[in-house]
Amino acid sequence: MTDPSSNSDDIIAEFVDVHRHYQMGDDLVRALNGVSMQVRRGDYLTIMGRSGSGKSTMLNLLGCLDRPTTGEYRIGGRDVSQLSDDALSDVRGTEIGFIFQSFNLIPQLTVLENLEVPLFYQGRVGAESRKKAKYLADRVGLGQRLGHRPLELSGGQQQRVAIARALMNDPLFLLADEATGNLDSNTEAEILNLFDDIRAKDGITIVMVTHNPIVAARADRALWLKDGEVEKLVENGNQAVVAGEHA
C-alpha cells in the first residue's frame, strides 16, 4: 500500500497551523498557537516541553479528545478537526491506541475483559476478539493473567496490559502519555524495551508525550514545545544506540 517514493502516503498524522485557545475568565489562553507537525509511518516521536508548554493540549488534540480552535488535523489523510462527537469517538476507537501514565485499566473488569473494551465499542466482541486478546496478552508476557483484576497486578504488569489494550484495535499509532511516569526505573526500562520491541517487530508508530529525557532518548525525534509553539524538532539519530542496548 505504501509507495516509498510517495512521501505523503507515509504521513499518518499531521497538524497544519493548529491553534487551541481557551477562554479562562477574561483571559484568552493560547494553549497551542500555530503548531504544524507530521507523524510518519513507523515514527517514534516524543513531544517534550515544560509544564504549560502545551504538551497536554497537543496530546488531547492528537488523541481526538479535543478539537482545534483553528487549523487542520489530518489522520490518514482525513481532516478530523471538525468532526462530530460520535465521529471522533469512532476515530479514537479505530485509529488510536491510548496508553496513560496511570494505566487506566477498568478495575472491576478482568485483564481479558479490559483488553476487549476497545473492540466492544465497535461491536467486534466475540471469539475473534478473545483470540486476539490472548495473543496480545502473550505478546506482552501476561498470557497467564487473563482472569486477574488490574489491582492484583503490579504497576509494570498493568502497563503491559494497557499496551496490549492499545494494540487491540490495530491503531494507526500508539499515543502514550508519560507511559512510565508511575513506574520505578527498572520497570520503566522494561516498558521502554517493550515499546522498542513491538515497534521493531510490528512496525507500530509511537507518539509519546513526556518530559523525561531517558524516555525521549529512545525515540527517533523529539518535538519541543514552548509557550504553545514548536520550539525545535530534534532528530536523535540514536537508533543505533537503542539497537545496541537491545543486542
Binding site: D85, D86, S89, D90, R92, I106, P118
Partner: peptide
C-alpha cells in the same frame, strides 16, 4: 468519572 473518560478514549460514544 475516570472510567467514563477511559471508555470514551477507547472509542465509546455518548450513547454507549
Amino acid at each position: 468519572t475516570r472510567e467514563i473518560g477511559i471508555r470514551r478514549a477507547l472509542g465509546a460514544k455518548k450513547k454507549h
